[in-house]
Amino acid sequence: MAASPRLTPRVQRRAALAASGWVALAATALPGGSPLRWIPVLAFVVLAPGLALLLPQPLGLRPGARLEALALAAPVSLSVATLVATTLFLTKAFSLTVFLAVLALFVTVAATLPGVPLPAATRGAVERDSARTSARTAGGTSPLAARFRKRRPGGGR
């Protein structure tokens, strides 16, 4: 597939995450209770903040870390959403727009930043990249591989 170098799947994923909150916010203009409203809103609140925090790894996630990111996405997302909602209610500032806008902003910013470097996520990615690069260059070291090899798998002590 000849994807544009600027629109790699990873960039597309980040863009989709960043946009999801604003889509959810726009969906609240639809009549109450409509599936076209609650489905995007629910999906955004339950998944987006966690995925935005965990997914954007520089070299993607290996399978084990992908399971971890998917499993943790919902609880982490709901935690962020709970803290936003609680803060808004405690400060008597709750409104639907503010709630979703704060979350959407959080997701947009988080999606543009590198993901939280949980060891399982970074370890696998570094190794896989090193392995791939080594295989490609038959023992040669590309600057990228050299850069990541400095980070020892497991992170040392």
Partner: peptide, 12 residues
């Protein structure tokens, strides 16, 4: 608070 926000967000 989370549920209240969801009630509003779902429009129910």
């Amino acid at each position: 608070s989370l549920d209240a926000a969801l009630v509003r967000a779902f429009g129910v």
